[in-house]
Write a protein that binds this DNA or RNA. Structure first.
Lengths: 337, 337
DNA sequence: GGCGAGTGTCGAAGCGCTTCGACCGGCTAT
DNA sequence: ATAGCCGGTCGAAGCGCTTCGACACTCGCC
C-alpha cells in the first residue's frame, strides 16, 4: 500500500505539503502542486480512509437506513437509494447501507463509532422510535417521509396532501361527481405510515370543497380482495365514475375487474393512480398518475444533509410538489344515460 | 466522545486490556472482563471505526456494487441488497453501497483506500470491465452472476441452465409437445448478460433431448410488443400449448392476451415463468414459476466472502439449484380435438 | 524446592493521516 | 534601510486503536 509519506519522498516534499495539496486547505505553489500530483498518479496513491477519518474525525460516509420490509414500494426505495448514492458521490461521500432490522441500535452504533457522519432514514413512521435518538445526537440527519412531530428534524417527502387534492381536482375537472378511493391495506393505516393518511386528508378536503362525493376503502390488494371492495363500492355508490388508487398491488386487479364488468376505462370510469412511474407505464391501461419522485427525494435528502454538514442549512420540512401526468386512464365523465 | 483510554481508566485497567476484552484475542480473567464490560456499558463506549481500521487494517466493511440501471429485476436487486446487508451484519460487517456508475474506478478507489476489505458485484456482464481489476487485487470479491470466464473468481448465481431444463421438463411431463419461449428484450441478449443465454441453453438442450419443439422469441415486453410476438408464434407453430416466460414485463400482457384470444390458462395453454416470487404471486393467474432466489444469493455471496476474509474458502462457482413451484398456470395438455 | 508452562496484565510502538505553529524568503510600506 | 506581511513549506504532535513482547504470578511436577 502506498502511503502519504512515500508520495512525499517521491516528490521531494514533506508529508504535510502533500496533505495540503490534497485538501487545498493551504496555498501551494503551482510547481510543487504539480510535482506532488504527478507523484500521486505515478505511485497510484489512495489516501487511507481509516487514517483520514481518525485524524480529521470526518469519515466522508453517510448512512442510509432502508426499511427491511420489502412488501411495498420496493422500486421506489431502490430508486431513492441509488439517487442517494450517486448524489452523495458528487459531494465526496460514500453511503453505508443499513437495514431497519437493527432499529435504534443501528443509529447508536453508527453515531457512536464515527463510522458515518450523518444519516438518512427512509420509511419513517409517524411515531418512529429512532427519532428521540436523532434529536439527542448532534449528528445531522434527514428523514425521507414525515413523522407526526417534525420539530428539530429535517424531512423530505412528496406533498401527499397536495397529491390527494390534485387527483380530486383532475377528476372534478373532467366532470366526475362521485369518487372512490382504493387505498393501501388496512395494516398500512394502522401502522400510521403518514403518507397514506396525508393523501386521504387531501382527497377529503378537496372533494368537500368541490362538493364531490368521496368514498374511501382500504384494500389488501390482489384480485379477491379487490373484487369484494369494488362490489361494495358500486353497491353503496352506483354512480361512481372516478377512482383514485393508492396501492400498487390493486392497480392491475382493478383494471381487470372493471374490464370484466364491462366498464371501459376511460370511457365509463376514470382511474387516477398514486404510484411509481414504472407501475403507471406498465399497467394494461397506461395510467393517469401522480408519481412518487424518488430520484428527487433522494437528491434533496443528500443535499440537505451536505448543507447541514457544511454548517449551512437548517431544520426544515421540504415537501415536493406533486405532478399529475395525464395518460390513457382518465377522461370526461360519460353522459348519464 | 468516549475513548478506549477513558474506559480503561474507569475500569482501573490498561488500554490494552480493554482492547483484549473487546476482541477476545487474549484470555482475560472473568473478574476483569466483567469490570471492563460494566465500564463500557456505563460510559456508552463505541470503538472508533476509523481508529480501528487504521490500527488493524481491517475496516469491517464490505462494498456492494449494484447496477445503476433500474429497468430490470429491481425487486430482486433490492432483496439481494437487503439480504447481503443483514447477513453481513451477522458477521460483524457493514455494507458500503456503490453504484455501477463509477465503474472500475469505484473498485480502484475502494480497494486502494482500504475503505472496504472486500466486495460483492451484482449484475456482472459476460465480459465485465471490472474483472481484470478484481483479478489483479488481492482483495477478496464475489460476483453475483456469471461472467464468461470464471477463472480465479468466486461467483454465485442461480443455475439458469438447470432452470431452463426444469421448465421444459415440467411442461413435457404434462404432455406438452410444442413450447414457445418468450424471452427478455433483444437488448438483453445483445448485452450478453449471461443469465438469459444460459437459460436458453438449458431450454434448448432439454427440449432436444425430450424431442419437443422449442421456439424462442425475445420480446421487449408491454402489450403491443407481446401481441406481435404472440401472433407470430401461433402463426409459426399453431400447436403451441406451453409457454416459458423470462421477462417480468411480458407476464401480465401474455396472460391478458391469451385470455382475450379465448385460450384459457391452464386449460388450453400452460405458462411457466422465470421471475421473482412476487411477480408470480401477484399475476392475474398465480404462476407456476422458478423463482430467482434473491435472499439465498445474497446470503451465499456474503458467506463466501467472509470465508475468504477468514483465509478459508476458495475460488469456486456456486450455482444454486432452481426450484419450480407449481401454481395455477400450468396443467395437462388438452386432448387434441 | 526449583523449573517450565501456562495465565493474565501492562507498556510502548506504531497504523497513515491532519493540522497547528513556526520558519524562511521576498515583498511592500514607511 | 528596516519593520511588517504574506505566500509557501516544514516538523511534530496527536487522532484512538491494535498488537507485540515483556513481566509477574500461580501451578503442577520431577
Amino acid at each position: 500500500m502506498v502511503t502519504l509519506a512515500e508520495v512525499a519522498r517521491h516528490a521531494g516534499v514533506s508529508a504535510s505539503t502533500v496533505s495540503y495539496v490534497l485538501s487545498g486547505k493551504r496555498s501551494i505553489s503551482l510547481a510543487t502542486r504539480q510535482r506532488v500530483e504527478e507523484s500521486i498518479r505515478r505511485l497510484g496513491y489512495h489516501p487511507h480512509a481509516g487514517a483520514r477519518a481518525l485524524a480529521s474525525s470526518r469519515s466522508n460516509i453517510i448512512a442510509l437506513m432502508v426499511p427491511l420490509r420489502t412488501d411495498m414500494y420496493v422500486p421506489v426505495m431502490m430508486e431513492i437509494a441509488i439517487a442517494v448514492t450517486t448524489t452523495a458521490r458528487t459531494h465526496g461521500y460514500d453511503v453505508l447501507l443499513l437495514t431497519g432490522e437493527e432499529g435504534p441500535d443501528a443509529v447508536r452504533r453508527v453515531t457512536g463509532s464515527g463510522l458515518a457522519e450523518a444519516m438518512i432514514l427512509m420509511d419513517v413512521e409517524l411515531d418512529d422510535e429512532r427519532l428521540p435518538l436523532l434529536r439527542a445526537t448532534d449528528q445531522p440527519s434527514v428523514l425521507i417521509g414525515l413523522p407526526a412531530e417534525t420539530d428539530g428534524l429535517t424531512c423530505v417527502d412528496l406533498d401527499f396532501e397536495a397529491t390527494g387534492a390534485l387527483c380530486v381536482e383532475h377528476l372534478a375537472a373532467l366532470g366526475h361527481r362521485d369518487i372512490a378511493v382504493i387505498g393501501e391495506a388496512p395494516a398500512v393505516y394502522e401502522r400510521h405510515t403518514g403518507f397514506a393518511e396525508r393523501t386521504l386528508l387531501g382527497l377529503r378536503d378537496r372533494s368537500r370543497r368541490l362538493g364531490l362525493g368521496l368514498l374511501h376503502r382500504p384494500c389488501a390488494g390482489g384480485y379477491d380482495a379487490l373484487a369484494l371492495t369494488l362490489a361494495r363500492i358500486f353497491d353503496e355508490r352506483p354512480g361512481t365514475t372516478g377512482f383514485v388508487v393508492q396501492n400498487e398491488s390493486a392497480v392491475e386487479p382493478l383494471l381487470a375487474l372493471l374490464r370484466q364488468q364491462g366498464r371501459a376505462v376511460p370511457e365509463d370510469v376514470s382511474v387516477v393512480a398514486v404510484c411509481p412511474e414504472q407501475v403507471a407505464l406498465h399497467a394494461s391501461v397506461r395510467l393517469t398518475s401522480v408519481a412518487v419522485p424518488a430520484q428527487e427525494m433522494g437528491r434533496h435528502a443528500v443535499e440537505q444533509l451536505v448543507a447541514k454538514l457544511g454548517g449551512r442549512g437548517s431544520d426544515e420540512v421540504v415537501l415536493l410538489a406533486p405532478e399529475l401526468t395525464v395518460r390513457a386512464s382518465s377522461g370526461p365523465v360519460p353522459a348519464r344515460p
